[in-house]
Design a protein around this nucleic acid. Structure first.
Lengths: 226, 226
DNA sequence: GTCTATACGGCGATAGAC
DNA sequence: GTCTATCGCCGTATAGAC
C-alpha cells in the first residue's frame, strides 16, 4: 500500500489537495513526471532546471507538461510534500511505539537515514532550495516550516526527557543538539551513494554509536553538571 | 594585514590570478562589490541572483559591473576562492603547531566554526551551489574539489593517528567520521546567527564535547575491537 | 567608472489544433 | 494527452558615449 498510513493527518497542503483517482493510471503518469523532475531538480537545482528539460526527459514537449501541472512550482511542491508526509508519519509511528529516550532517538535516527535512499532527490532539493522556495511570494511553501517545527518538537521532547531521566548529559543544549543531529543526517545525501561500503542501516548504526558514546576511548572528560 | 599569510601556496586559481594593485583603492571597490554579491548569492542562490540585482545593491547599472568582472561566474569564483584560501591556510597552520590527535582535531573543529561568521555568505554559497558550479562546462571550478581533497587528507591523517594511538575507538570508519564532522560544522551556517545564545566559540566547544564523549552519561556500550 | 541602449537567447506559460 | 506556435518577459553580456 503506497498511499498514506492512517497514523495522522497530512501535514502538507499539496498532499491533501491532490486528487485520488480511482484507476490510478492517470496519476501514475503524473507521479512518473514528478520523479523525473525531482531527479533534475536534485542534480541541477530547482531554478536551473527548465520545464523544457523536464519535458525532454519525459519525451514530450514543454507545453504538454501544463496538461498535468499548472506551474513548475506545483511540481516541486509535490516532490517535497510527498517526502515530508512520509517522514512525519514515520516519526509519529516511532513515538507511538515508545521506549526509553535513547531507544526512541535511536529509532528516529534510523528513520532519518532510511529515507536517504527512497527520497534522495527530495532531500537534496529540500537542502539546496529550501531558502529560495521560502522566499517566493505567497504562502505556498510555508508548510515546509510547519513540518520542520513539528519534527523539531518531537526530537526536543526526547532529548529533554533523556536529560531529565539522567540518561543524557545535562550540559548540552537540547536545541543545538537536535540541529546537529538533523543536519548530520540530511546532509549525508550529498555523498551517500547506494552500493558503497555502508548501506543506510550501517550509516545509522555508525552515527548512533558516535552520537551516544563519542569518538574517544577511555574515561570521559568535563562531566560537570548544569 | 588582510592578505594571505605565507603558510603555503594559494590553493585556488582565482586567488593567484587576481592582480594585486599597489594603492589598493581600485581593488577595494572590487572587493566591496564581491561582498555585496556574496550576500545576494547566499540569500537567493547563485542562479537566482541576477547581475541587475547585484548592480542595484551597489547603486550602479548592470552594464557597469562588467567593467570590474567579465562574468557573473568570475564573481562567485572570487567569493569561494577567498574563503577556501583562508581555510586551508589555517588548517595548515594548525597542523604545524601539532599536538595529540585529539588536540589537533579539536583545533580544526574550532577553526571550522570560527569561519562561520567572517565567511558566512561564502560557506552558504558553497553548500547550496557546489553541485551546480561543478556541473558547469569547463574546469573553472575544479579547484573546489582539489581544495576539498586536501582538507580531507588533513582530517583523515589525524583521525587515523588517533586510532593508531588508541585515543579514538577503532570501530568507526575514519572517512565516514570525517564527513560527518565536516558536514556538521558547515551546515551550521543555515541556522547560526551572531548574537544568539551561543557564539561560534561556544558552538565549537559544545560540538567537541559531543564528538569525543557523546551524548550519553554512564558507561559506554559496544566497545568491541575492529 | 558609469550610463545609455540594445542584442540575443532562453525562460515559464498559454491557446487551440489534432 | 500531446503538438504547434507563439507571447511577453527577463536573463547575461556588449558597444560606445560621456
Amino acid at each position: 500500500m503506497p498511499t498514506r498510513k492512517n497514523a495522522g493527518p497530512a501535514v502538507t497542503p499539496a498532499a491533501s489537495r491532490r486528487p485520488r483517482p480511482s484507476g490510478g493510471s492517470a496519476s501514475e503518469r503524473r507521479d512518473h513526471l514528478v520523479k523525473l523532475a525531482a531527479e533534475l531538480f536534485a542534480r541541477k537545482g530547482f531554478q536551473a532546471t527548465t520545464v523544457r528539460q523536464i519535458a525532454d526527459e519525459a519525451g514530450i514537449l514543454s507545453g504538454s507538461l501544463y496538461h498535468h501541472f499548472d506551474s513548475k512550482e506545483t511540481i516541486v511542491d509535490e516532490v517535497l510534500s510527498t517526502f515530508l508526509d512520509d517522514l512525519v508519519a514515520r516519526y509519529r509511528a516511532a513515538l507511538e511505539v515508545g521506549g526509553t529516550p535513547r531507544e526512541v532517538l535511536s529509532e528516529m535516527v534510523r528513520i532519518g537515514f532510511s529515507t536517504l535512499e527512497p527520497h534522495r532527490a527530495a532531500i537534496t532539493v529540500m537542502q539546496n532550495d529550501w531558502n529560495y522556495l521560502l522566499s517566493l511570494p505567497g504562502d505556498r511553501f510555508a508548510y515546509l516550516m510547519k513540518a520542520e517545527e513539528e519534527v523539531e518538537r518531537m526530537w526536543l521532547e526526547q532529548i529533554k526527557a533523556g536529560q531529565a531521566a539522567g540518561e543524557f548529559r545535562p550540559d548540552v543544549d537540547p536545541k543545538l543538539t537536535y540541529r546537529m543531529i538533523r543536519d548530520t543526517i540530511w546532509v549525508a545525501v550529498r555523498w551517500f551513494r547506494p552500493g558503497g561500503r555502508l548501506n543506510t542501516t550501517g550509516l545509522a548504526e555508525h552515527y548512533i554509536t558516535m552520537l551516544f558514546d563519542g569518538l574517544a576511548t577511555g574515561e570521559r572528560t568535563s562531566q560537570q553538571g548544569s
